[in-house]
Design a binder for these strands. Structure first.
Lengths: 218, 218
DNA sequence: ACGCAATCGATAATGTTATATCGATTTCAT
DNA sequence: ATGAAATCGATATAACATTATCGATTGCGT
């Protein structure tokens, strides 16, 4: 049953999972209740869940434990993905020391930086290596994910280096547009885009007196 | 001409702006060229630009300087938005010291943390205050944006505190689902959702031999 | 001048995502 | 047992976003 999961649904699944983790294993939950907790419609919830799970029971709902398992599997959280991080600046180090990634099957095995002064052992206990060592390490360890937290001007070069080193997915935090070869997935963590939504909301609200606003989330 | 800007378009606008900044003021650019640089179709570019600018000229394209101005205005980058940040952990401090926000009209005026040990002056030069001082400062300075970088369990409480203090937009980095009153915009910076896309891509590619992959970006 | 090529804008067609409707199934109370 | 309430899943409709088509405008070379 490898059903199609729409891109939008895919991004909601982690939210369901997050919420389900706060519930006891043995519990059941209805699509309505789940939706209410997260601010989604119940039909949407059913559709999303239908694409990863083989269904709930009428009058009872879904089994929490089962659902958690199904979502985690669909998202690939069950098999750990090793990753490297490039750019041991503030953001890079913040990500390196973030414990929560292991919940999502992500394991940052090492970091790299062009600046020798940034190399050595990080507070998090992880090693920061000179950039030159990246290709070799990636190939030897068969790393598939590269996290980019370098300044904008260095981003494209780093991406290319990663791709040449066998990376298959790039998670780009640099405020720059980068291109990757076909076959490599590029996910921009686009703070500017998020800010745009915030900023525009405030600007718009200033002009017109918006009457009914619903809870809006992403 | 306050035209409607679709949510999707809104999130692409910062990318255009980012790219336009690398171009000389006096230059012109066609929708085709702009699209090619960012990986979008030319028609989409025209539509996006049409919603913020009053048009380019045939055979010439758009005037770079004008376009930058129009996009910045549409996004509200022209009038600085003051913000406070709650949670001076690693991620919080990384954001505090990120210089680039000023390009987007965002100015983090102060940070707050429940832990007294975290208070005082940060490396970035900004002050970290005890959480109790938040409501007063927000009200006095008429702060409209709250950035939440606290652990998941504290997120909801902090959101409520912010909303009670007159905040009108919450930018939530905590890996937790939070709710806000109607009228307040909530934007979740959802790393788990991004990771889901990455992770699923890798898992999917492992099973089926995906033939033609196009560049995919967000 | 004149025609050609580039480019835009508007409208139409397509695709994707969200919501609504409805019948079927299961539990629980009587 | 039997009926009522809750809940699911499937199908249909509607909203939204992207891509295609086409005619109109402008600048440039001849």
């Amino acid at each position: 049953m490898p059903k199609v999961i729409s891109v939008q649904a895919l991004q909601r699944l982690p939210l369901y999972l997050q919420y389900l983790k706060t519930l006891p294993d043995a519990a059941n939950i209805s699509a309505r209740a789940l939706g209410a907790a997260l601010g989604f419609g119940e039909i949407q919830v059913r559709k999303d869940l239908a694409s990863v799970s083989d269904g709930g029971r009428p009058k009872v709902g879904y089994v929490v434990a089962q659902l958690r398992h199904d979502i985690a599997c669909a998202l690939g959280y069950d098999n750990v993905n090793d990753a490297v991080l490039v750019g041991a600046g503030r953001l890079g180090r913040a990500l390196m020391s973030y414990e929560g990634f292991s919940d999502y099957g992500l394991n940052i095995v090492a970091a790299f930086d062009a600046d020798p002064a940034a190399c050595g052992q990080d507070d998090s206990g992880k090693q920061v290596f000179p950039l030159e060592k990246l290709p070799d390490l990636c190939r030897r360890m068969k790393i598939e994910i590269g996290i980019v937290t370098v300044p904008a001007r260095a981003a494209q070069g780093v991406c290319e280096l990663l791709c040449e080193s066998g990376i298959r997915a790039v998670w780009n935090f640099a405020p720059a547009h980068v291109t990757v070869p076909a076959g490599v997935l590029l996910k921009n963590e686009n703070m500017a885009a998020s800010l745009a939504v915030l900023s525009q909301h405030l600007a718009a609200e200033d002009s017109l007196s918006s009457d009914s606003e619903k809870e809006k989330a992403t």
